[in-house]
């Protein structure tokens, strides 16, 4: 009677013993790696994930930051939907993103192809293309504000000199948003061009040689060699560009103040206004959550649709 209780079944003991040793061993083997990871995790946890989580909670609360916050359910969201600027902000953000892709996606690619073909003064042209990235964004915006001045601004002066019709640029609801897209494209394309350039230079030369031997024209080479070979980079940059341009803020904030007639108010600018002008942090967080949800869903869908290519 005593034997079975004193001697546990061998297979069970073996299984527990194996199961207990493995994680311990894995932990021991990777202790250095976990130590390195801890710093990063702590920083991300403390400065990114915790505030982000807090912001999501705050989206459903009303708080004056002194007394404890009160739960308001979906009130912050309801308030946003009732805000006359809410619709305009989303419309403008989508329009800005669309225009930024049309202009800001094609132009850097074309420039990268051009730079890749250069035989002389390569370094100079690369620097020239990248230079705007090094100018602080607010300085860029102020500089372009002067370019766009409908009176003595640089662009209209040039147009007048050429006897061409002038434009109202940021002063008109019709041209304000496009004007800001041009600024954003000019200011940011340097980085994109360099990434494209790196991708282009990674294409094996023999592919072009083979194409040339087959009698492919320059367009055919771009279409059948360059584009397929850089497809991965293009798709990644497209996603990153969409995420970045959906968060446009500096240009409308510095150059137009969201006007004229809300023609350049963007989602991020509206978040800023709620948080720091109206001091309504709950609604600011609610709008941030909406933007996050949109970008998250969009990114997931995008990656799923393009999973073959990436």
């Amino acid at each position: 009677m005593a034997a079975p209780t004193l001697t546990p079944p061998a297979p069970r003991l073996a299984s527990v013993s194996r199961g207990g040793r493995r994680p311990r061993r894995r932990l021991k083997d990777n202790v250095t790696a976990y130590a390195f990871l801890a710093g990063g995790l702590l920083c991300f946890g403390l400065f990114s994930w915790y505030p982000a989580g807090r912001a999501l909670v705050l989206a459903f609360q009303q708080s004056n930051s002194v007394d404890s916050a009160t739960w308001v359910g979906l009130d912050n969201f309801r308030l946003l939907f009732d805000d006359p600027e809410f619709g305009a902000a989303w419309r403008n953000t989508f329009a800005f993103t669309g225009l930024a892709l049309v202009i800001g996606f094609a132009v850097p690619f074309a420039l990268a192809v051009l730079l890749n073909e250069l035989r002389h003064a390569k370094a100079f042209f690369r620097l020239a293309v990248y230079l705007p990235v090094m100018i602080p964004p607010v300085v860029t915006a102020l500089l372009w504000k002067w370019f766009y001045d409908p009176g003595p601004g640089l662009f209209n002066e040039v147009l007048r000199f050429l006897h061409l019709p002038t434009s109202e640029w940021t002063n008109s609801t019709r041209t304000a948003l496009v004007s800001l897209v041009l600024v954003a494209t000019w200011a940011n394309m340097g980085g994109t061009v360099l990434i494209y350039l790196a991708a282009l230079q990674a294409i094996p030369g023999e592919l072009y040689e083979a194409a040339e031997l087959d009698g492919a024209s320059i367009w055919q080479r771009i279409r059948h060699v360059t584009i397929p070979q850089t497809r991965f980079v293009m798709l990644m940059l497209l996603l990153l560009q969409i995420v970045a341009t959906m968060q446009v803020f500096t240009e409308p904030f510095v150059m137009t103040g969201g006007g004229p007639e809300d023609a350049t108010i963007t989602v991020l600018y509206l978040i800023y206004k709620y948080a720091f002008v109206y001091l309504d942090y709950g609604s600011a967080c609610a709008l941030s959550a909406m933007l996050l949800a949109f970008l998250g869903v969009f990114s997931a869908l995008y990656l799923w649709v393009t999973r073959e290519a990436t």
Partner: peptide, 27 residues
């Protein structure tokens, strides 16, 4: 492919949340 996808989605989520977190405090 999957790892890259997750990483990118993670980066996107983090980027969006950084701004959202700017307004939160304690007493």
């Amino acid at each position: 492919r999957d790892r890259l996808g997750h990483r990118t989605v993670g980066a996107v989520l983090a980027a969006g949340l950084v701004l959202a977190g700017a307004a939160c405090t304690s007493s």
